[in-house]
Simulated assay, not measured.
Amino acid sequence: MVEARRSEILSLVQQHGELPVTELSKLLGVSEVTVRSDLKVLVDAGQVRRTRGSVRLPLDIRRESPIEETRLEHSAAKRRIGRAAAALVRDGETVFLDVGSTTTEVARALSPTLQGVTVVTNGLNIALELERLSGVRVIVTGGTLRPLQHSLISPYALDILRRIHADRLILGCNGVHAEHGVTNANHEEAEIKRLMVEQAREVVVVADHSKLGQISRAHIAPTRRVTTLVTDRGGTQPSAALRDAVLDLILA
């Protein structure tokens, strides 16, 4: 019971970014004394940090790297994951293709024989990658540019996405955890990703082995919402709990 409550605290903080202790007490139906006791354990474990009267996720002191740099990390694995995920796309589908270095590899691997496919993306570099495919119509969401990632965020991006229902979403992330779900380092991008999850029938998460078991700042979706997890065979392998949590697993 105690562990479940602490997991719920962590999940709530991931979703909101920061929460007052009084609000956590109300949401959990326990006293503020109990919440503070739980927070001490989470703080000692480095999973959250306390501010005056509130709790938030730990500071990530790493700078955000340009996508041109991150695509070099585990590049061979990302290419294999990209090919495996691209093979899931069928003629006539509407697909959300999320931003990121691994989803860029998906765009590069999409078959030139595809016909009648509509790809909706908030990634400018991904839209340019897809120009070569005559059978793919590309819709760019619009919104405010995040230069390092070539991604578009609110305002306006959400307005477009609310009007579209997709057969599948191919989703990038910074962490996939059996209990804490799919998470991302940037809150603004996570907002876009959450709406894509809501608007998609199937969710395909593409994540190299370094993302497995990791928890990042912003919650995207619970693991039970993941239809397929596509990862690589190198390094850390999915835990038994993670394998059980997703509907399907593809090792590229």
Rank of each mutant, 00 (worst) to 15 (best):
M1N: 11
E3R: 15
E3Q: 15
R6M: 13
E8K: 11
L10F: 02
S11M: 08
Q15D: 12
Q15H: 12
H16S: 15
G17M: 12
L24I: 10
K26W: 10
K26R: 15
S31M: 01
E32S: 13
V33I: 09
R36H: 08
L39R: 02
L39M: 07
K40L: 14
K40R: 15
G46L: 01
G46N: 01
G46W: 01
Q47D: 08
R49D: 05
R56M: 12
R56G: 13
R56Q: 13
R56W: 02
L57S: 09
P58M: 07
D60S: 11
I61H: 12
R62E: 15
R63V: 15
E64H: 08
E64K: 12
P66F: 04
A76G: 07
A76H: 08
K78W: 01
R80S: 11
R83H: 08
A86L: 08
V95Q: 02
G100T: 05
T102I: 01
T103H: 06
T104A: 10
T104P: 00
T104G: 10
T104H: 07
S111M: 04
L114H: 04
V117L: 06
T118F: 03
V120T: 08
G123A: 15
L124Y: 07
N125C: 09
I126L: 11
L128S: 12
L128P: 00
L128N: 08
V136C: 05
V138S: 05
I139C: 09
T141Q: 06
G142E: 03
G142P: 02
G143A: 06
T144W: 00
T144S: 11
L145W: 00
L145Y: 00
P147Y: 03
S154Q: 13
A157C: 07
D159K: 09
I160V: 15
A166V: 10
L169T: 07
I170N: 03
I170C: 04
L171M: 07
L171F: 06
G175L: 03
G175Y: 03
H177F: 06
E179V: 14
H180E: 02
T183V: 08
N186I: 10
N186E: 09
E188Y: 05
E189H: 05
L195S: 12
Q199D: 05
Q199G: 07
R201F: 09
R201M: 06
E202K: 14
V203R: 00
V204I: 15
V204Q: 04
V206P: 01
A207G: 09
H209I: 03
L212E: 00
G213Y: 01
R217K: 13
R217E: 09
T223M: 01
T223L: 02
R224Q: 12
T228C: 11
L229C: 07
D232R: 01
G234C: 04
R243K: 13
D244T: 09
A245W: 02
L247E: 14
L247P: 00
D248P: 00
D248I: 00
L249G: 11
I250V: 14
L251E: 09
